[in-house]
Amino acid sequence: MGMNNGHMHQTDVVIVGAGPVGLFAVFECGMVRLRCHVVDVLEDVGGQCTALYPEKPIYDIPGFPRVEAAELIVRLKAQAAPFQPVYHLGQQVQSLEPATGGFWQLTTSKGTVIQARAVIVAAGVGAFGPNRPPLDGIEAFEGKSVFYYVTQRESFRGKRVVIAGGGDTAVDWALSLAEVAARVSVVHRRDRFRAAPESESRLKALVAAGKIDLVVPYQLQSLDGVDGRLMAVNVATLDGVEKKIPADILLPFFGLSMSLGPIAEWGLALERNQISIDPATAATNRPGLFAVGDVVTYPGKLKLILTGFAEAAVAARSAYGLIHPEQPLHFEYSTTSGVPAA
């Protein structure tokens, strides 16, 4: 099934978000013979796994003692493939409104219009982007010598790297890049880190061994360089003591700014920027709209990929009940029935 009749599509379910939970929702819908279209603002499937940490190992996926994020996405996509989902990538959902005949009509930033009987919101943390440090002229360096994500560690081999920040991401990449970079300096405004204790003690050990420079308590002040090529990162203490760190690369890790974007306008019950659902059905307060994964909240909610997978299975059954109220679902285990023919 490809792109039919221009920009207008009709399907059983439209899934908003193509991260791991959105991809697994395609599979679960397929198991109950529901067809899916999937919309994501990123150019590729995988959500944060692809955009932010493709090489990061994940340890809590059942049956995988360890799996890299990118590999998990490859496998989830392959698992969904038999059900021929149609992906609409690189576009944001702009509006969602009820249409005739019990359909929801969804319109994207590229003018794609999809009508579906059910919508499953699997939007993770919503639209996300890096928190930029407030440095003059930083835009000129972005994508050349200033990066907010590490997708390939190898590209920093032999480089002088400055990492700014004090969370897990900053500490984890300092430990990892110390193995390949010519020099790693970590700039943080205080001596304490907000990272896993085990990681912090490994960092301190590498500092003691002279493998990592710890530049504390300093903050980023300005950048030296030309044509997007960084030469030095200037830092200062709160008392105005300045220091120049020769550098080829700056990695500012100040977390992500999250926003639900247009989803916030859909009349869903929200609690602290998350969508409230009934975990028994994955239903929101609006009939036909379901939500799963990190974007949802309910008492006892665990923010784990595996919880999102379970919620996706619940949402698919609920969508089936909505779309085929006259046909009770005789659920068979995939171990006995195999995967249904698409």
Rank of each mutant, 00 (worst) to 15 (best):
N285E: 11
K303H: 14
S337C: 11
S318D: 07
L322M: 10
L177C: 00
L302K: 13
K303S: 15
I305W: 02
A182E: 13
A25C: 13
Q115I: 05
G158Q: 12
D44Y: 04
A123W: 01
G101C: 08
A341V: 14
V226Y: 01
T50V: 06
T11C: 12
V215K: 05
L96Y: 05
V187F: 03
E200C: 08
L175W: 07
P130H: 06
A247F: 06
D239A: 14
K204N: 02
I263R: 05
G102K: 11
A208H: 09
S257D: 10
D213F: 03
R66C: 15
A247E: 01
D227I: 02
G46W: 03
G90N: 02
G111N: 08
Y148R: 00
S176N: 14
G129W: 06
L268W: 10
H88N: 07
N285S: 11
G293M: 03
P246Y: 11
F141R: 00
D172S: 08
A208R: 09
P57D: 13
K243M: 14
W266H: 09
G63A: 01
A196W: 15
L289Y: 08
L203I: 04
V187Q: 01
K77C: 11
A170F: 04
E55G: 09
V233W: 03
R272G: 03
V296Q: 11
P287W: 07
V32L: 11
V180P: 12
V26G: 02
S109Y: 06
G225L: 06
K243D: 00
Q115Y: 03
G321E: 10
Q91G: 08
C49L: 14
L76T: 12
E271G: 01
L306M: 14
M1E: 04
E43C: 10
L52A: 12
F193V: 05
A174D: 07
H37V: 15
I305A: 05
T50G: 05
L220M: 07
T335F: 05
L135M: 09
